[in-house]
Design a protein around this nucleic acid. Structure first.
Length: 110
DNA sequence: ACGCTGACGTAAC
DNA sequence: AGTTACGCCAGCG
């Protein structure tokens, strides 16, 4: 185990995010059963920098805003990647976030 | 070794 | 209904 179980769980869920979809920290946290640990989920994403295959750009806050873009090499990186997948990003926020929202507690349940 | 902060979200006032 | 405070876990000062 390179990361803690919680971190690993987060990574697993994030890696399962389909292309062109996005999810929120809270959704992942809720899926893990610790919705109060949403902060830790975001923090886990920080560790994702060392993990290839972790589309952190697909993970945004519950408002659909690219709050984590600042942590990318280039601020436009996250936004660019999302746009490349068909995600409409305006003012660092996903316009059709509700439409592209991918909830693990729902998608994975089905 | 102790305490603060941090890519959020919910609860309480 | 809006604002403030708190909780979670781990990394870093």
């Amino acid at each position: 185990m390179i990361q803690s179980d919680f971190f690993t769980s987060v990574f697993q869920v994030v890696k399962l995010i389909p292309r062109g979809r996005v999810t929120s920290y809270g959704a992942i946290a809720a899926y893990l059963g610790t919705k109060k640990s949403s902060r830790v989920v975001g923090f886990a994403m920080n560790a994702s920098h060392a993990i290839p295959g972790i589309p952190a750009h697909r993970v945004v806050n519950r408002l659909g805003c690219l709050t984590g873009k600042m942590h990318f090499s280039n601020l436009d990186e996250m936004e660019l990647l999302l746009k490349a997948e068909g995600v409409i990003v305006k003012d660092d926020c996903i316009v059709n976030f509700k439409q592209l929202f991918w909830d693990p507690s729902i998608e994975l349940e089905l």
